[in-house]
Design a protein around this nucleic acid. Structure first.
Lengths: 222, 222
DNA sequence: TACTTCTGATGGCGCTTGTCGTCAAATACT
DNA sequence: AGTATTTGACGACAAGCGCCATCAGAAGTA
């Protein structure tokens, strides 16, 4: 009874080459195709109007491969959102670091804002990150919350490093960071919804003013 | 063949009394029941998970009456959103006016913020206004955009009335107002998503600081 | 009392969705 | 060449949806 299994032993995780790709390469490529399809469809027709069939057609694959990598369209949405924000966050950090060595807070602020708004000039990315991701499910809501908090922390760390004696209470600091992210993201959202009517420099200027204004109100210990 | 129609002539808009209510009263009551059901369901299970059947069950009415007043669940969502924001806006304006006669900007700011965050302590209202309304359709997006701009205008009008010589360019003024609304609304959204963990006074303090900081950065002409 | 309007309950129709199964062709291994 | 695996196309299924029709009974009207 057990020796019958010996026949089928090697077909378990054979993962042979097909079309010049290994099993892992195929899986990775399929995943990428679905991620691209997700960004395209979620960012244009929207998440709730996107079906598995549409995603497969856009990706040029069949549903079998969709379910091999993702459990749900919600699962794919989370992956697309995470990837987009990962990249943007990296770009913002890079931009800040590149200009922060001058020890000039203003330069770092503007550089960060510039990188941020430049990234969201991609309407699909903007739509997914600010419009489609909200109110989908508790799981996605939590993902969103954590990501926003992450961004707020990034901003606050930058601020604290530049203002050595930070005197605001912990809780108010947290809320202030979130509020700032809210200001920046609402700007980006309206930019998108108004078809990028305003210029990027105006957004940077307005939000930079907000940030600098905040810094001035901080209780100074010096 | 035509005289048969004469019999049914008066049944066109008879609108007689039923259950002690006139036709208009019945329609108004049904509308109210659906509005309440909409706020309840959109604010708990969410808009995309809410069906016509659920709404009718919650309202205690049948679908015939739903379609008599609304064309769509989207139509109902727009009505619920509009009604909620109308009320909140009124409360905020009232609060500001009640404390503005003291000519103290700080008092008006805090009073407005207080009214705002108090209103959004209702989780259903908060969820509908900040979570469910986004990314539904172009029509709802536009409604949202207009409402946010309205709020921003309210804020800017208050600011301009208190700072007589406003020197910021028009476009940057607009963006700044939107950014401020974004800061306040993001605070409210996170407040909701974190189950109202922080205290209301902390939110007021953090956002008040942001507004006062902004005012200080404005180019003063005096 | 007869007649009309209004209401609530129920069922059904057409459509779309997620999901799974089948099957022939393409590709790789031995 | 022969076998095993991978792929794409296609179809089918149950479930849920918006929406509409029917029908008996309640509420008003004459």
């Amino acid at each position: 009874m057990e020796n019958t299994r010996q026949i089928g032993v090697q077909n378990k995780q054979s993962g042979r080459i097909y079309g010049g790709e290994s099993a892992e390469e195929r899986l990775a490529r399929q995943r990428r195709q679905f991620l691209d399809a997700g960004l395209e469809l979620f960012g244009t027709v929207g998440y709730r109007a996107t079906t598995v069939r549409m995603l497969c057609k856009q990706a040029g694959l069949t549903d079998r491969y969709f379910y091999k990598t993702f459990t749900d369209t919600e699962d794919l949405l989370a992956a697309v959102y995470t990837e987009s924000l990962d990249q943007i966050q990296t770009e913002v950090i890079t931009a800040i670091n590149a200009s922060a060595n001058e020890q000039l807070a203003n330069g770092a602020i503007d550089a960060g804002l510039e990188a941020f708004f430049t990234a969201f000039e991609n309407a699909r990315v903007a739509r997914v990150c600010w419009l489609e991701v909200l109110g989908v499910s508790p799981r996605i809501d939590e993902l969103y919350t954590k990501r926003i908090e992450q961004f707020a922390d990034l901003l606050l760390d930058l601020g604290k490093s530049m203002l050595p004696d930070w005197r605001l209470p912990e809780e108010e600091t947290r809320i202030t960071g979130l509020a700032l992210i809210g200001a920046i993201s609402q700007s980006a959202l309206h930019w998108l919804l108004e078809d990028y009517r305003s210029s990027r420099s105006t957004l940077i200027s307005a939000n930079g003013r907000l940030i600098r204004g905040l810094i001035n109100t901080l209780p100074q210990g010096v």
